[in-house]
């Protein structure tokens, strides 16, 4: 039983409610851009380095910047210790994360250089890739990289036969379906989509629409975090 008879989930949320989100911009002194996010029990640090010289040099692209992304979970981030070597899961997530961020960046502005994005999961709680993308996009903005839009991400899924927003750890593991989605909210374009589980076409559409709608709330929190650093809270996001 992950949803009780009143429709309340294990952590007290309703079906369409997000977990509490806190973001802080520019938290690492060495990085060109950084962002720390708490998304439910997820605690994630993102650092952006670059544009910088490319090593090894043959990797450099003559017409645009090389974007590199590493999603990594700390050994203490999970219930049982995670081996620090990158797993196949982490390699796949690093790839989809890069592909989720790439459409938002104007990489043609920085030919022959590289930008590194490091997403370090300090504590994981389901939905860490979405929280990671959300924070990484803000860290890229903090680094002053030319961008078309921010990228905001959230997962939807099916738990106890019901479509729900933002799956936590248990819901992710025991639920019937999980669908992380990332959007550029102003351009209205999908940059990440993954899905696992069983959904009818109708359920799929309902879940997907819930994700498209809810991602706007995340976008607002991203902007508030950037306004907080750059306008010191004097200008408010409307």
């Amino acid at each position: 039983m992950l949803i009780d008879e009143k429709g309340i989930r294990t952590d007290g949320r309703k079906w369409n409610e997000l977990r509490p989100i806190k973001m802080e911009v520019g938290v690492l002194k060495n990085a060109d851009g950084s962002c720390y996010i708490e998304f439910g029990k997820n605690k994630i640090m993102v650092a952006v380095y670059g544009p910088k010289e490319v090593h090894p040099r043959h990797m450099a692209l003559s017409d645009r910047c090389l974007l590199r992304c590493r999603y990594h979970m700390s050994p203490f981030s999970t219930t049982t210790r995670k081996n620090p070597a990158p797993s196949r899961r982490e390699i796949e997530i690093s790839k989809v994360l890069r592909e989720a961020l790439e459409p938002s960046l104007i990489l043609e502005d920085y030919p022959r250089t590289a930008i590194d994005v490091f997403v370090e999961i300090l504590q994981s709680d389901g939905g860490s890739r979405c929280a990671g993308i959300t924070a990484a996009s803000v860290a890229l903005a903090d680094a002053g990289i030319n961008m078309r839009d921010l990228v905001s991400a959230v997962a939807v899924g099916k738990v106890d036969g019901k479509i729900v927003l933002d799956l936590n750890d248990v819901e992710d593991k025991e639920g019937e379906a999980d669908m992380p989605v990332a959007i550029m909210p102003n351009l209205n374009r999908v940059t990440l989509f993954q899905f696992e589980g069983i959904l009818t076409k109708e359920e799929f559409e309902k879940a997907y629409e819930l994700a498209l709608k809810s991602v706007k709330k995340i976008y607002k929190i991203q902007r508030e975090a950037l306004y907080e650093k750059y306008f010191e809270g004097e200008v408010k996001v409307e």
Binding site: E99, E102, R189, L192, F195, L199
Partner: peptide, 13 residues
């Protein structure tokens, strides 16, 4: 006819 897995790949949107 139900959906059971999905993935977007590639650097576009």
């Amino acid at each position: 006819g139900r959906l059971c897995a999905g993935q977007k790949g590639g650097s576009g949107s």
